[in-house]
Design a protein around this nucleic acid. Structure first.
Lengths: 110, 110
DNA sequence: AGTAATAGTTACTTTTTGGTAACTAGTTTT
DNA sequence: AAAACTAGTTACCAAAAAGTAACTATTACT
């Protein structure tokens, strides 16, 4: 997150954390259980490994996600939500419901 | 909003609508009352007129904001939230509260 | 006649974000 | 010995978003 640019505005600060193209989806995917890098890659169709890495790193730096790396080979890395991340889930849920209305309207228009 | 790229995912669709750098702030500002273009420009420090115009246009196209133009001179244009936009406000409120926690943590860290 | 006010627009540039494809390192399987 | 598996990284490119500064049209005020 950009700690300089939110200018003390909590709404902007929040948007800086969840505003990446795939971040809400990543958080949503980690809601039910922790996941490995490869699982996220598969379960979020369309995301590239590079961007997945980057957004996971940012979510980690922002304290939304925990990263556990096991000293195995082939490597195993698990991601899970922190408490801070879990507090975000109900909000994303509301947003999701609101988004459903949009999609319905779109269908009606089509 | 990009109606092509949400792939039917309501969360992505919602983020496409509110994801602009200043959009949550614009919506928040229109919550209490309708505002003129110039008022928004003043009350959202840092935004440029060009970007304000663009994001208002997009919010209008997405049905979040209503635009009323009065045939006067100098021109007067008022913006207000639609029902759809108003349903967004409590969600942004939750996000804002969550954002407050972030800011507190930042202060502790500083 | 000149200036100010409003709600923009336009051209141009910079920054940010995302995407592609090839590559890496350590270990296991064939 | 070669190939596969995982979780990345790297270099390069394209697109999107945002920023700056100058400009416009209409009317009122001085």
């Amino acid at each position: 997150m950009n700690k300089i640019n939110h200018q003390g505005c909590p709404l902007t600060a929040a948007m800086n954390v969840i505003g990446g193209k795939w971040k809400p989806l990543i958080i949503y995917n980690l809601n039910k259980s922790s996941k490995r890098f490869g699982q996220l890659d598969v379960q979020i169709p369309g995301i590239s490994r590079k961007v997945l890495t980057k957004q996971l790193t940012e979510l980690f730096e922002d304290g939304i996600v925990l990263r556990t790396s096991y000293a195995e080979s082939p490597p195993r890395v698990e991601y899970q939500l922190t408490k801070k991340g879990k507090r975000l889930v109900p909000i994303l849920n509301s947003l999701c419901k609101w988004g459903c209305n949009i999609l319905e309207e779109e269908e009606e228009a089509a």
